[in-house]
Design a protein around this nucleic acid. Structure first.
Lengths: 337, 337
DNA sequence: ATGCTCAACTTAAACGATTAAGTAACGGAT
DNA sequence: ATCCGTTACTTAATCGTTTAAGTTGAGCAT
């Protein structure tokens, strides 16, 4: 391994000069700088992040707190896409990422201190967990995804827009008898539902209670049964809104098992816009949450905080998505209703 | 932030004593040790990994080289499952992981040196890439997944077993006219095909060339077309083997579009055993690759190498999978053939 | 010639831990 | 009483960088 000292020896200067030259400090002569940089490259020099971190107090490392409650956070497309984007944007800004995980005898915050991460991105977690609260209450720069803590910057998917978008799509396609299967009653679900009821009241659309079923995000079995119940209604909905694209597969199965076709007999709308929704047949009309953009922004904002000498004022950034079209919704003509 | 010095001051001992007490060194009195440990806990002490790494030369950090050629490595279930397992086992052994990624002006190896990772796990990558070769040729402990480099420990999914398992399943269910769609001709594909031909010659099964189509892993569109071609054959296969469960969705679409049912009209078999294969209808018969176990073993073996004073002799570890049953294959009675 | 400024370096301390080598005190053997 | 071996510490160096403060010599004005 080659160190600054080795370069200094070769170049006949002090290590301080080498360090400054490599960091492009202004008080080194242009000629010396170039010579040193050339020799460093030639010798294959790479700085030692531990030594640098020790001295500067900056690790160029970002902690990522991503806890998959069911142990499969990464296999959920929404989160894996976000993680990819986080990774990519961090790399772009020359940061590495470190997963903050439940250590044997370390809290999340202690793990952060141990590794000396410059900041943390928090997502997909139990936001009421004591350890998470401890972390959020610390002096570490933090950006939270899909949850708003007071005085902390948050990047959130616009669930109001999403809720409105899906119901509006169905409505605009002429559907007036709409079924609704939603996820467990988290704040996310609540936001989507609020927007849906809001839209209904605006246009005078009535969704009877019997048309609304609770299922669970990412759980196709639960959605299968909820769909079955909707299909058995005396006045069967012409269109069903699903909790998310993945659980929709359960709905799809229920519909096929009932001998019905999409969109001829019944229309369907998903949520998330994961890749799977593109390859199934027919492609699903769905609200695409821009997880990629959310991840990118989260890192961008976090690094802004890290780089800022004075604490920045927290922001809440809504990331809007958009409807992805597909063949799963049939237009209902006025005379059909 | 509290440091060893602070604890030393409070306990009235030197920092050396504190360090040794916390690291449970033998030359510290039992009483002192306990007192120091208590005070450290009380004060919320956490060691500084940079300082420790600088002195000891060990970072307790493992590099993970996981390059998604299409920018979606993490959304592929096989790899995201593996990554989860890598993360979990690393945490178990008190390591953190760092993604090694294509840096702006760093090779993979330089990235490793910069972060001082104690070892590297390599997976899902172009194994002929010059930078990967450079990394593998270095003195860093390395474990490679799904590829064998000379003199390096490898953890590989048993593709021969997998290939044999799927064809054997079809054969045992009475199928004699089998269609085969395989992925691009990588060494992985080659292994599976070899095992399939081997089985065929053993039992005297003939798969005509026209029954074999090349598609692409994880590409449902390519598989859609390949399936269509097989369905149009004058002597249509009674069972089709697919490259992987995900691309199978394309095959499923092609079969449905042709107005056929699974398994009544045609049987299907996948590969991978991803969660999706469980929730589609009918559940797919598939060969489950134990990605979780592979990830676990990779870290286990890597840490063995890291901990060993002398270089360990490289191993090649085959991880076997197993058939997951499903409803996608119909039994063909002898009189039907 | 003197003093001053400035550029271009060097010196040396520091970051927070670990650890080899040194030391003091004590108990037991002789 | 002396010596030896332990035990339980302390001292001080060190890991590889960074950086504040110091130094040197050149160039220039007076």
């Amino acid at each position: 391994m080659v160190h600054i000292k080795d370069i200094a020896k070769v170049c006949g200067v002090s290590s301080a000069t080498v360090s400054k030259a490599l960091n492009n400090q202004p008080d080194i002569g242009e000629a010396t700088k170039e010579r040193i940089q050339a020799v460093a490259k030639e010798m294959g020099y790479m700085s030692n992040s531990s030594a640098r971190a020790l001295k500067t107090g900056k690790t160029k490392n970002i902690g990522v707190l991503f806890v998959d409650e069911q142990g499969r956070g990464l296999s959920h497309d929404y989160f894996s896409t976000m993680l990819e984007a986080i990774k990519a944007q961090a790399a772009e800004l020359e940061y590495d990422i470190t997963f903050i995980c439940p250590g044997k005898n370390m809290s999340y915050l202690q793990h952060c201190y141990f590794r000396g991460v410059d900041g943390v991105v928090i997502a997909n977690i139990n936001y009421n967990d004591a350890q998470v609260i401890e972390l959020v209450s610390s002096d570490l720069p933090v950006v939270v995804i899909d949850h708003v803590y007071p005085q902390k910057t948050a990047v959130i998917s616009d669930n109001e827009m999403g809720g409105r978008a899906v119901i509006q799509y169905a409505y605009n396609m002429g559907h007036r008898n709409i079924g609704l299967i939603h996820g467990e009653l988290t704040s996310v679900t609540q936001k989507r539902l609020d927007a849906i009821w809001q839209f209904c009241s605006e246009v005078g659309l009535n969704i009877p209670k019997s048309n609304v079923k609770e299922a669970k995000f990412h759980d196709s079995a639960k959605t299968y049964f909820a769909t079955q119940e909707l299909l058995r209604l005396p006045n069967r909905p012409t269109c069903i809104l699903f909790p998310d694209d993945y659980s929709y597969i359960g709905g799809l199965n229920a519909i096929h098992d009932a001998g019905l076709s999409i969109p001829e007999d019944i229309s369907t709308i998903g949520y998330d816009g994961i890749e799977l929704s593109r390859i199934i047949s027919p492609p699903l009309v769905t609200y695409h949450q821009d997880a990629k953009e959310m991840g990118r922004i989260a890192i961008e904002k976090l690094v802004e905080q890290i780089d800022s000498p004075a604490p920045l004022k927290p922001e809440v950034i809504m990331v809007s998505g958009s409807i992805m079209d597909g063949g799963s919704v049939r237009e209902i003509l006025p005379e059909e209703n």
